[in-house]
């Protein structure tokens, strides 16, 4: 492995924090889901790096399933968002303030 494992983890960690930042600060449902996707991809990078580090294929298998999970998340999420847009006409999650 040319790149040390620590560097891979660092990259994954930074990407993860970017995703968290995007999820927590953006005021748009699509961008929030995008942030979560970035977080998932950070986890995928960490898994690939770890799989190389331990010389085992299980990490790679994880990544395939994470892709599937991300696809599910987008399909369910976009269905919800389109539904929300039809009802309220905006992508703003702060319009959800009925329940309290």
């Amino acid at each position: 492995m040319i790149v040390p494992f620590g560097h891979v983890l660092m990259l994954a960690g930074m990407l993860f924090l970017l995703g968290v930042f995007c999820t927590l600060t953006r005021r748009n449902l699509v961008m929030i889901i995008l942030g979560v996707e970035v977080m998932l991809n950070a986890a995928a990078i960490a898994f690939v790096g770890a799989a190389l580090h331990w010389q085992s294929l299980e990490g790679q298998a994880f990544v395939l399933f994470i892709m599937a999970i991300a696809a599910t998340e987008v399909s369910v999420g976009l269905a919800l968002i389109v539904y929300a847009y039809r009802r309220s006409g905006s992508f703003d999650p702060s319009s959800c303030n009925l329940l309290r």
Partner: peptide, 17 residues
């Protein structure tokens, strides 16, 4: 839910690493 589960997946990645 998706936020918590992506945190969990990243945790699993670190644990596996």
């Amino acid at each position: 839910g998706i936020f918590a589960s992506s945190i969990m997946i990243f945790g699993m990645a670190l644990l596996y690493g």
